[in-house]
Amino acid sequence: MSARRRVGSVLVYAFLAAYTLFTLVPIYWVFVTAVKPAEEVVAFPPTLLPRTLSLEHFAFVFTKTRLGQGIVNSLIVAGSTTVVALIAASLAGYAFSRFRFRGRGVLLGSVLGLYLIPPLISVIPLFLLFNKLGLLNSRVGLVLAYQSLVLPLLTFLLRNYFDGIPTEIEEAALLDGCTRLGVLRRVTLPLALPGLATAAIFAFILAWNEFVLALILILSDDLKTVQLVIMEFVKLYRIDWGALTAAMVVGMAPVLLFLIVAQRYLLAGLLGGATKS
C-alpha cells in the first residue's frame, strides 16, 4: 500500500513539475529574449541561456518608442476604470447584499447574464454610439466602455464579500442613529476593505490587459494604451523580437507585480468569484 502510494506521489510530483514547466517556459522565453543582445536574439540555433546580458532592448523601447506614453495612458485608463467601477459596484453590491427589494432577483440575474454576453457583441454599436457622442478617441470613452467588462464581475465579487460581513455591527450603528449611507461609509466599507482591494486589482488587471475595444475606439497615437503600443512592434514581415519581448516584459510587469505583492487578494477574488458567480 505504502509503496503504491509512494509511486503515486512520484507521479503526482512529476506531473506538477511538468505542468510548472509548461506554464513557465513561454514566459521564460520572452524574458530571456528580452535580455539577449540583438545578435543573439536571432542566433541559430537559439540559446537557452543568454550568453551575454544586455538591457539594450529596454533602453530602446523606453527612449525610441511610444511605450512610456502608452504606460501613462494605460495607467490613467485602468486607474479611472477601477475608481469608477469600484464606486458603482460597491454601492450596488451593498444594496444586493443588504436589502430585499422588488426586482432584486431579476436585476441580479440580468447582471449575471450580461457577464456572459461576449464583449465582441458591443464593439460595433459602441463604435457607432461613441462616434455620435464624440467619445471616440478619448480616454473617457474607453473608461466607460471598460465598465462593460468589469462592472458585472465586480458587483458580484462585492456582493459576495458584503454577504460575508455580519450584519450585527451595522444594526448596532443603525440603532445609534446612523443613516444607512452613514453605516455603509463608516462601518461596512472599512470592514470590506480586503474585498474592495480584491475588486480593485481585478478591475485594474482587466482594463490594463484589454486591447480589442481600445483597437477600435482609440484612433490617435498619443492615446494608445500599452497593449496597442506593443502591437506596433510587429511589422509586416520583420519583427524585432528583442524590442517586442522587452515591451512585453514591461507590459506584463504590473500584473506580475500584483501577483507577487497582492497574491492573497487576487486568489481570494479568483476563488470567491469562481464559486459564487
Binding site: F127, N131, L136, N137, I216, L219, S220
Partner: peptide
Amino acid sequence: TTLLAQDPG
C-alpha cells in the same frame, strides 16, 4: 475607423 469618425482632428 478614422474616416468614419469624420473628425479632422
